[in-house]
């Protein structure tokens, strides 16, 4: 049985406009597609990835338009659709002025105090 791995994402919007992705969300998709048993925890600024209404469209450099901006909330939702458990730290949501209704559905809220219990259920915790 594949090792159960929790991917912790905390850095947000690092080169996402160039990459068209968050690179950790992306590699989680790719590794899941290769048979990995991976799940995701959004913490710190990365909780904003679950926010509805993100719109990075409209960039242009001279006449060169960026036609495919990142759609990170959709990418996170896509993971949930593939059976990936996506946890999100409740305090980090609140500290950033977000409410549950601002976020996509299917997330599993976890308190900071609950992280040890969450980590205990994984073979490895990769803290990106």
């Amino acid at each position: 049985m594949a090792k159960k791995i929790l991917q912790v994402v905390e850095t947000a919007y690092r080169a996402t406009l160039e990459e068209q992705d968050d690179t950790v969300v992306w590699i989680t998709h790719a590794m899941k597609g290769s048979g990995g048993d991976l799940h995701l925890l959004l913490r710190g600024n990365a909780v904003n990835y679950a926010c509805k209404g993100q719109d990075a469209s409209g960039l242009a450099f001279g006449e060169k338009k960026q036609t495919q901006p990142p759609r990170i909330a959709d990418d996170v939702a896509g993971l949930i659709g593939k059976g990936v458990e996506v946890y999100i730290v409740e305090e980090d949501i609140a500290e950033r002025g977000l409410e549950r209704g601002d976020l996509i559905s299917g997330l599993k809220p976890v308190e900071r105090a609950g992280l040890p219990k969450l980590f205990a259920s994984y073979d490895q915790v990769w803290h990106w």
Binding site: A2, K3, S34
Partner: peptide
């Protein structure tokens, strides 16, 4: 290689350390 190699590495090694950028 590709992320599939990281899956294989994780499965076949004793441990994995991710050193992320910020």
């Amino acid at each position: 290689g590709s992320p599939a190699d990281l899956v294989k590495f994780a499965e076949s090694s004793d441990n994995t350390l991710v050193i992320p950028t910020k």
